[in-house]
Amino acid sequence: MNSHKKSYTGMVVSDKMDKTIVVAVKERTLHRLYKKYVNKTKKLKAHDERNEAGVGDLVRVVECRPISKDKCWRLTEIVERAK
């Protein structure tokens, strides 16, 4: 894995598309004015070549070249399988 590419760890929320998963990445940030932690979620479409990830899996995705209009992330590993 190259160090200059971004990588995120998140939960798979959809695997209905062929060779594509939707990963929800949660982030806790401190609000500048109110000094309160706010949860932010971003959804990334990632390329899953072998269709091995399922809904509920904790996965790591890494930045890659654009594969389609929305897809510029690639599945690198499944950290934890869904129970």
Rank of each mutant, 00 (worst) to 15 (best):
23 V>T: 04
81 R>W: 12
49 E>K: 15
22 V>I: 14
81 R>F: 07
20 T>R: 13
64 C>K: 06
63 E>Q: 14
14 S>E: 07
35 K>R: 14
79 V>N: 08
71 K>V: 15
62 V>K: 06
14 S>Y: 02
20 T>I: 15
40 K>R: 13
76 T>K: 11
40 K>W: 03
30 L>I: 06
52 E>P: 00
40 K>C: 05
28 R>A: 09
5 K>H: 09
55 V>C: 08
62 V>T: 13
10 G>N: 00
15 D>T: 06
72 C>Y: 15
25 V>C: 04
8 Y>N: 04
80 E>G: 04
36 K>Y: 03
2 N>A: 06
75 L>M: 09
18 D>H: 12
60 R>A: 06
81 R>D: 07
49 E>Q: 11
42 K>P: 05
54 G>W: 03
71 K>G: 00
12 V>H: 02
17 M>A: 14
21 I>N: 05
20 T>S: 01
53 A>T: 07
60 R>M: 12
66 P>K: 12
44 L>P: 12
17 M>W: 03
37 Y>T: 15
40 K>H: 14
63 E>H: 13
65 R>C: 02
7 S>P: 00
15 D>Y: 03
15 D>L: 00
82 A>M: 05
19 K>H: 06
19 K>S: 09
48 D>W: 01
68 S>C: 02
7 S>L: 00
12 V>R: 06
34 Y>G: 00
54 G>E: 14
7 S>C: 05
52 E>W: 03
7 S>D: 03
60 R>F: 00
5 K>V: 01
55 V>I: 15
83 K>Q: 10
